Computed example of a mutant assay.
Amino acid sequence: MPAKSAAQQKAAGAALSAKRGETPKKDLQGASRAMEKSMSEKELKELASTSRKGKPEHVSKD
Rank of each mutant, 00 (worst) to 15 (best):
M39E: 07
S38I: 02
L44N: 10
A18G: 11
A7S: 11
P2H: 00
K61F: 05
K25V: 14
A7V: 05
A7F: 03
K53E: 07
S60Q: 10
K26H: 08
S49T: 12
G13P: 01
L16H: 10
K26P: 03
E57T: 14
E43D: 15
K42E: 15
Q9E: 06
K53L: 01
E57M: 05
H58C: 00
K45H: 14
K53C: 02
L28C: 13
A34K: 15
T23H: 01
R33Q: 04
T23G: 02
L28I: 13
A7C: 05
A11S: 15
K26F: 04
R52F: 01
Q9G: 03
K25H: 13
P24Q: 13
Q9N: 06
E43V: 13
Q8V: 15
E41G: 11
S60P: 06
S32K: 05
R52I: 09
K10W: 10
R33Y: 01
L28P: 06
G13K: 04
K25S: 14
M1H: 07
D62M: 06
S38T: 15
K45E: 15
S51R: 05
Q8A: 15
A3N: 08
K10Y: 12
L44D: 05
V59G: 02
K42I: 03
M1W: 01
V59H: 04
M39H: 10
S32C: 06
M35K: 03
A34L: 11
E57H: 08
E36D: 15
G54I: 06
S51N: 11
G54C: 06
P56T: 02
E36G: 08
G21S: 01
M35T: 11
T23V: 10
M35I: 07
P2N: 02
M1F: 02
K25E: 15
K10A: 14
R33S: 07
P2S: 00
L16N: 09
G54A: 10
